[in-house]
Amino acid sequence: MLNTLKNRFEQGYRTSTYPKKTVELVPRYRGRPQVHKNAPSDLVVKCAAACPQDAIDIDRKLINMGRCVFCGICERISEGRFISFTRDFGYSVAEKDHLLTDGEIPSLADHARQHFKKLFGRSLQLRQVSAAGCNACEADLNVLATPFFDLARFGINFVASPRHSDGIVVTGPISRNMKTALLQTYEAVPDPKVVIAVGSCSISGGPFRGSPEITEGLDSLLPVDLYIPGCPSHPMANLHAFLKFFK
């Protein structure tokens, strides 16, 4: 008993005060990309050629956050002159078009579906479906239940049954072998329901695009309401998106 109390005392109080106070991530964290439009075209071409995800639109000088894995190679190659990564984790979007960006990302709160705010703003139950995710996106969602993030204090919970949930959160590139299970889970959620795509995989196929075993984009199967890019998306990005979209 004494041991239990001693540990409790040593562990202290760990829950962050976010969103009242913002959270500063470390310098090497790569959040919202910023495109510098005045970069010379040859530099843009060079970055695009090296980008493992072919996520750079050369002509329009834009970056496709749905494909990007935030590896930072473009930033290194251009020494930040074409693309630089900010520490801002508030880069999630409600419209697919907004994924293709120069870094000026429309406010998520303004584009959130108002009827969802009304319905789920005080209580939101979500069912997570891992559809061939690599377990990193899953882990960084799971972590929202730990004391630092403490998702439950916002009235948001991950639940076991789709029938008890208000929507699904999908990770992974939706393998052929998971497609049926995913669609059945979606069917089992009562209307009206929300669909959230987390990670490069579920948005675009991510690292696995081009494989015949996967689906390139959850939105080809289901109507997606909220896109959270990343590989994986940082838990703060997930938390930010949930709060802006539903609160």
Binding site: V69, S175, S211, P212
Partner: peptide, 23 residues
Amino acid sequence: QHRGIENLILKADSKRLPIIIEG
């Protein structure tokens, strides 16, 4: 969870390999 990784590696551009491997 089968994503066909071993076959994808054979046809993917070599710049993609580290990203696939890390996935």
